[in-house]
């Protein structure tokens, strides 16, 4: 038998339920932990971000109108997909950081557990965060939650899978959709994650992942008026740029420090869901 021609996967990013290259055609190389070239991944531009936001915005009405129970089922299904392909994901994580060799397996397991955690919250956070308020008049007074819309995520370098999915799961469980910028130093796990998202029953556009340079994309994340909230791992100038840019369109910015411990159980909390919901209070007359 003749020698096989090598078949090497072209890394593409997952946007709007499809796998795309950057509209610019640009790529940047990623290297494994031994300094060996692995692949060229898309170097997404602000136009790619704009297109991703359009896709994400289109997905919000359908996703947020699903029953909370169904959103929980779908996020649980994503956990199932990740669990079934845990070996592949572990391999990818291991390939890019030898320091995590023992931790790679653990990171995948923790990510699956975290998805299951937030899947469970889908039909429960409303009971915790919403309320029936006592008022001194013949009215029922309820405070209810609503998703805010498109949430931008700037992912962590220290845990390129666990960090990204912790941020994403807490945002989408309430009906938001997400446009995420994957870790710049380790983008490959997010590319592999895209392939799992595609088989997870999540409607296209609910989670969109871009790869590229933070410096190029952070200003656009900050100023894009259609992005209603940002969950970013950032410090210094990046954090300032996000806060300042977000002010014009009055969007919420949650900044996390790069040394955040993603394994910590503090990342499993209903208050993470509260970051990106709006509260609506309604008065309803008490009937006879």
């Amino acid at each position: 038998m003749s020698e096989r021609i090598p078949v090497i996967k072209t890394p593409k990013v997952y946007v709007g339920g499809a796998f795309i290259r950057s509209e610019s055609g640009r790529t940047f190389p990623v290297y494994d932990s031994g300094g060996q070239f692995v692949a060229n991944v898309p170097q997404c531009t602000r136009k790619d971000l704009r297109n991703a936001v359009e896709a994400a915005a289109k997905a919000v009405p359908g996703w947020s109108r699903r029953t909370p129970y169904n959103r929980g089922q779908i996020i649980y299904r994503l956990a199932e997909m990740l669990e079934a392909r845990a070996d592949e994901m572990t391999g990818v994580l291991r390939q890019f950081a030898p320091a995590w060799t023992s931790a790679a397996e653990q990171e995948v397991a923790e990510t699956v557990d975290r998805l299951v955690h937030y899947a469970g919250w889908a039909d429960k956070y409303e009971q915790v965060l919403g309320s029936a308020n006592p008022v001194a008049a013949p009215f029922f007074n309820f405070t209810l939650t609503e998703p805010i819309g498109v949430v931008g995520i700037i992912a962590s370098d220290s845990a390129p899978l666990l960090g990204l999915l912790t941020q994403a799961a807490a945002a989408i469980v309430s009906g938001n959709t997400v446009v995420a910028l994957a870790s710049e130093s380790a983008p490959y796990p997010a590319i592999t994650l895209g392939e799992m998202l595609a088989t997870s029953d999540l409607p296209g556009g609910v989670v969109n992942i871009l790869t590229g340079y933070r410096k190029e994309l952070i200003p656009t994340f900050a100023t894009h008026a259609h992005i209603r909230g940002i969950d970013a791992v950032a410090t210094g100038d990046d954090a300032t740029a996000l806060r300042r840019g977000a002010a014009d369109s009055v969007k919420r910015v949650k900044v996390r420090q790069p040394d955040i411990n993603w394994s910590s159980e503090f990342n499993e909390s209903v208050y993470e869901i509260r970051n990106f919901i709006d509260f609506k209070t309604v008065w309803h007359p008490i009937g006879a």
Binding site: R50, T220, T223, H226, D248
Partner: peptide, 9 residues
């Protein structure tokens, strides 16, 4: 403005 706008504006 240099900033992408939301359609509902």
């Amino acid at each position: 403005s240099g900033a992408y706008q939301a359609p509902y504006y």
